[in-house]
Design a protein around this nucleic acid. Structure first.
Lengths: 231, 231
DNA sequence: GTAGCTCTCGAACAAAGTGCAAGACCTTTC
DNA sequence: GAAAGGTCTTGCACTTTGTTCGAGAGCTAC
């Protein structure tokens, strides 16, 4: 009957599609199986548990991000390119942030980028331990930036599960949030400006602003280090 | 029979304890009820849904963070104090990061701090929209810094549910991660140094490093703005 | 004491992860 | 070409967990 059989690879790809569509808790074995055209339990022959599937999916998408060439450009250009690439990837797969906060994600896909990050910040002039910290800081900021997008998806799916109108419930939640915000002068001031809640719809250029501020901060620290070493 | 009845407040406090102990997915209505000494369904008279409970708990803990006095100190001291206070709170309640990535968290507790943040960065010299971005950037970084702690708790609880030895399984996972890391020069170099995986056990001073870098970056940007305005 | 409100409880349902054993399909070997 | 054994799929069933519902217990006001 089955002309083409399941493979771990096909399952992971389908899982990524599902995760993109419905967020981390939209991924369940029954709807995954439906997407694959198989029985829910067929998946278990190829993949041990749902957690493993999440880990595999989370590592696979790292390959979408290009590694910048450290020899071709200065470190700052490379750092901007790398962080921006990660940010773009996370915008396509916002569930990675959710997965990151509940699963232990290791694997070659991410390790490759970790290694490059370290090389990058060592080239910038940081000592090994400070390069660690710089890389971790940028990583944390990039992951955190994507969390807002994750909520929208996750929430939309969760709300519509109960049959209710997700848009309506979402709008209600935003209205209630606005009411709370109205009681604080600076938040009230911004109610018209910012589309939804403070963080969920944070303007896109918050990412650029934050990243450039971070890199400015790194440069300042490097300059200070050089100055103190010269004494 | 019930000499002292349940209240929403008591439930929220118990929920926070449970969340602190076992992470976001350790909070389930049955073990919450056990902690309260009541039937699982008794809670529903006071709180609509589990999601609501998470929202209430997530907002309540914001009151643990002290608001710095903006008139008493310069902005940078205030910003450091505020971010450090948030970081300390998140270390006590690491599940907030997880909750943040799957629930729409609004409420007076957080709004109070959002408002103060905006005031702080406006006082530093940022225009309204840049103050927004600065506040969001710091918030993202602080939340992200706590995600590592959340995983440990979450994972420990999830692994031990199946009866197995959580410590052992955790150690296995770390070993596998180390094996992956060994294939990359800069990661291999650090294998002895860093305790566990790259991010989970990120040294505590990564937070300080990142925060100070960010604030340095803000100062640089403010100085540049002032310079360009003087022309 | 009795009506009505507040609150608790137990039974029960639905969604979802997953183990198990039976079987279907495919490849290899004689 | 048939038997054997590995590869893969499936249906059944069990468990955990959120949640609904209706019955009832306790308390308060008259």
């Amino acid at each position: 009957m089955p002309r083409d059989t399941l493979t771990a690879d096909r399952i992971v790809r389908a899982a990524i599609e599902l995760l993109d569509d419905e967020g981390l808790d939209g991924l369940n074995m029954r709807s995954l199986a439906k997407r694959l055209g198989s029985a829910p339990t067929a998946v278990y022959w190829h993949i041990k548990t749902r957690d493993d599937l999440v880990r595999l999916a989370a590592d696979a998408i790292w390959h979408e991000v290009e590694l910048p060439d450290l020899d071709a450009t200065d470190w700052r250009t490379a750092a901007t390119a790398h962080a921006t690439g990660m940010h773009a990837m996370l915008t396509r797969h916002p569930w990675l942030g959710q997965a990151f906060s509940s699963h232990l994600l290791y694997g070659p896909g991410k390790a490759r980028h970790d290694d490059l990050s370290l090389a990058l910040y060592e080239k910038a002039g940081f000592a090994a331990d400070d390069a660690d910290r710089a890389a971790a800081t940028v990583f944390i900021f990039v992951i955190g930036s994507a969390l807002g997008h994750a909520i929208e998806l996750s929430l939309k799916h969760r709300l519509s599960r109960n049959g209710a109108d997700a848009e309506q419930l979402m709008a209600d939640a935003v209205t209630r949030a606005a009411e709370t915000a109205r009681q604080f002068p600076r938040l009230r001031e911004r109610l018209g400006t910012t589309a939804a809640t403070e963080y969920a719809a944070a303007p896109d250029n918050t990412f650029t602003f934050g990243l450039q501020s971070l890199l400015d901060g790194f440069e300042a620290r490097l300059a200070a280090d050089r100055a103190s070493r010269r004494d």
